[in-house]
């Protein structure tokens, strides 16, 4: 084994000094140095324009990225004093969430949303605050409001809401799945959405519903060995042993049809070994 560590020629003479600085500095020197440089630039702008609230808000956001909560807070307050319409409570709430101060985050966002109840980003951030406080239903409600107001919501947000509802208890599983269906209507049968629904249906013992969900996957996904095997797993748990064996055998056949290179990947080899065991050893 050989290892090469080279440095730019221009820096060779300074190598020893640079190395000393690097070893002595915090591990995130580069990141912090970048933020520090930008803070310094804003310091100069603020010094030249002490009444500009936007500059304080920009500097506060940099301090937030730097996790300098106290200094950020001071800049947020100054920004708010100078320019009251800067939506500072939203930024302040987001900072408190980053800092793990959930009560303060909720308070700031509650205040902000009382004034701007349709602010989708604030609703989304408050949902995460509420979720971390364990108030899953309220978090899901905030996400619902945010989703209704977003121009381009993502399937990830729909999944986040569904996960909150499922974790809130069995009474909310149907609601979670209705939300997933809304997402499927909007985005099409994404594998992420359907896999979630399959998992939920399987976990609550609704095996036929889980199989029906698998049936809605795009053909290119449904015909993957992994999904054929998943179908077999559900059939087996549901007591349909013969059908399970057929599914497992079909999965093995699909594996054999894969290009050699893909067939030899660790994931496929592991799956193939498991399927062989299931087909040959399980009592059907």
């Amino acid at each position: 084994m050989r290892r090469v560590i080279l440095t730019d020629k221009r820096w060779r003479r300074l190598l020893a000094l640079l190395m000393a600085v690097c070893w002595a500095a915090p591990v995130t020197l580069g990141a912090h140095a970048d933020v520090d440089a930008r803070v310094a630039a804003l310091d100069r702008q603020i010094a030249a324009n002490l009444r500009n609230g936007e500059l304080y808000l920009k500097r506060a956001e940099l301090h937030r990225l730097h996790q300098d909560w106290d200094v950020a807070l001071a800049d947020y307050q100054r920004a708010e004093q100078l320019t009251p319409d800067l939506e500072v409570d939203f930024y302040r709430g987001r900072m408190w969430l980053d800092a793990g101060r959930l009560d303060l985050a909720k308070s700031a966002l509650d205040h902000f949303l009382r004034i701007k109840p349709n602010h989708a980003n604030a609703l989304r951030v408050r949902a995460r605050v509420l979720a971390r406080r364990g108030d899953r239903l309220a978090a899901a409600a905030d996400l619902s409001k945010a989703l209704a107001r977003l121009h381009k919501p993502t399937p990830d947000l729909y999944l986040e809401r569904a996960q909150l509802l499922v974790s809130a208890g069995s009474a909310h599983i149907d609601g979670a799945l209705r939300g997933i269906d809304q997402a499927i209507a909007r985005f099409g049968p994404l594998v992420t959405l359907i896999q979630f629904a399959v998992d939920v249906e399987t976990n609550r013992g609704h095996h036929m519903a889980a199989l029906a969900r698998i049936h809605t996957l795009p053909d290119v996904v449904k015909q993957l060995p992994t999904w054929m095997a998943r179908r077999g797993d559900i059939l087996l748990v549901a007591g349909h042993r013969k059908e399970a064996k057929v599914a497992y055998t079909a999965a093995l056949t699909a594996i054999k049809r894969l290009p050699t290179q893909r067939r030899r990947t660790r994931a496929v080899v592991t799956l193939e070994n498991r399927l062989r065991l299931l087909v040959t050893q399980a009592a059907y």
């Binding site: 989304r124 121009h151 993502t154 990830d156 997402a183």
Partner: peptide, 29 residues
């Protein structure tokens, strides 16, 4: 990335629905 907003998402038009192969993710993120 949650809201698919901002200059990055305005400037780039990236696949969400397997337009160029692969599996659809539903998001440009």
């Amino acid at each position: 990335s949650d809201t698919q907003t901002g200059p990055y998402y305005d400037i780039f038009t990236l696949p969400t629905n397997a337009e160029a192969g692969g599996l659809a993710s539903g998001t440009e993120a």
